[in-house]
Simulated assay, not measured.
Amino acid sequence: MVSAHPGVPAPWTGTDSHPAPRRLGPWIRCWSPRPAARLRLICLPHAGGTASFYRPWATLLPPEVELWGIQYPGREDRFEDLPVDRMDELVTAVTDALAPLLDRPYALFGHSMGSAVAWEVAHDLRRRQALGPRRLFVSGREAPGTATIGDIHRQSDDVLSRELRRLGGTSDEVLTDPDLRPVVLGCVRNDYRLIETYHPTPHPPLRCPIEVFTGAADPELTPRSSRDRAGGWADLTTARTEVHTFPGDHFYLAPRRQEVVTAVLRRLDPSLAMGAHRWPSTP
């Protein structure tokens, strides 16, 4: 569940072509601030992932939508921060950090582990009587309570490396580099511990629509969820649930970036994806 270059948890301050993002405290990043935007899209990474995994989306969004990414500790510009390996602690910290962004409508998008975090954050926001998301986008994972739980975090580095190769998205160059390998695997192992020891408690159904995004050849999805692509998410809301399937494996998000962003925009507001706006493509 780690991406090759964005997932490498090393210090990062930006380059000339990719300036450092705006930080709103330690947890939130924005690469293209849009004070006049009427919607916000808040994205949560996968296990081992980073906020910058979503950075290329910023150039694909129209001026009406402002992109924010959640930065988990222990990677990139939070390399020296202690990682969090408990879901409740992570959710509380993320929900606290989101408070300044709740002054306008927003949606949550989570990939893999991030989908479970996003679901829990939506419930935590409701407990606090805060503004809830307009939509919840969940990607690459079955619903909490339905997803298969493993014990990869207890296995050797070789087993963990094989798991990352199985999912795709992590290059052999990273996994064989004697300096990068232990750093990357340490970050991934922590996040696997978090998601594999996570046992969701029952919540009342959400009231917002849930959009389920999947890769057609994602090895994380069970045969049952291949037949029922909603993967149990339809039971977790009183609103509508729709499934969007894209060509590709667990990390379909990278090669299908334009299609994914277009689908997100269409579900947020059809007018945003009807060609009424022109904005640059991904560099």
Rank of each mutant, 00 (worst) to 15 (best):
W279K: 05
R86P: 00
S3H: 13
L44S: 01
S225C: 12
R55T: 04
G145K: 09
L61W: 00
A122G: 09
D88N: 10
R104C: 14
A47P: 02
V91L: 08
R134L: 15
A143V: 07
S161H: 00
R193V: 03
R240S: 11
P209R: 09
F213D: 04
I152G: 08
R135S: 07
R166E: 09
I28A: 12
T241C: 13
G49N: 08
M274H: 13
A107P: 06
A143M: 12
L180M: 13
G49S: 09
I149K: 15
G232T: 07
R166G: 07
T201G: 04
E220K: 14
P45D: 08
I70K: 01
R165T: 11
F246R: 05
Y252F: 15
V65Q: 09
H203R: 15
D218R: 02
G7L: 07
L136I: 11
L164M: 13
H203E: 15
D77H: 11
V117S: 03
H111P: 05
F79L: 12
L24C: 03
P33Y: 13
W233E: 02
V212K: 00
C208R: 07
M87I: 05
L41T: 03
Y252L: 02
A254F: 14
L167G: 04
A116S: 15
D191P: 08
R22Y: 06
G248K: 09
S225T: 14
W68N: 02
V212Q: 00
R40I: 11
E64L: 08
A239M: 01
V260N: 02
G48N: 03
G69Y: 02
D151E: 10
D218C: 05
R104G: 14
H111T: 04
E211K: 06
V188L: 08
P205C: 04
P26L: 02
F246W: 09
Y252H: 01
S156K: 13
V65N: 10
V243C: 15
P105Q: 09
R165Y: 11
T59N: 12
T170F: 09
A122Y: 07
P182R: 12
P35Y: 08
V8N: 05
G248Q: 12
P255V: 01
S139Y: 07
F137W: 14
L160H: 09
L101G: 10
A143N: 09
R207L: 07
G114N: 03
G48H: 03
D218T: 01
P223D: 07
V260Q: 05
A276S: 11
S112F: 10
R224F: 13
D16K: 11
D177N: 15
R38I: 04
T92V: 09
V188N: 00
S139P: 06
R257K: 12
R229L: 12
L90H: 00
R278S: 12
V183C: 07
W279I: 03
V121E: 00
P133I: 03
E80D: 13
H244L: 14
P202I: 04
D158C: 07
W119A: 11
P247S: 06
G248M: 13
W27N: 01
F109D: 04
F53R: 00
H123M: 09
Y252S: 00
P283C: 05
P73G: 04
E163Q: 13
Y54I: 02
P19A: 06
E80K: 07
T197R: 13
A216Y: 08
S225V: 06
A273I: 02
S161C: 15
L253C: 03
A93Q: 05
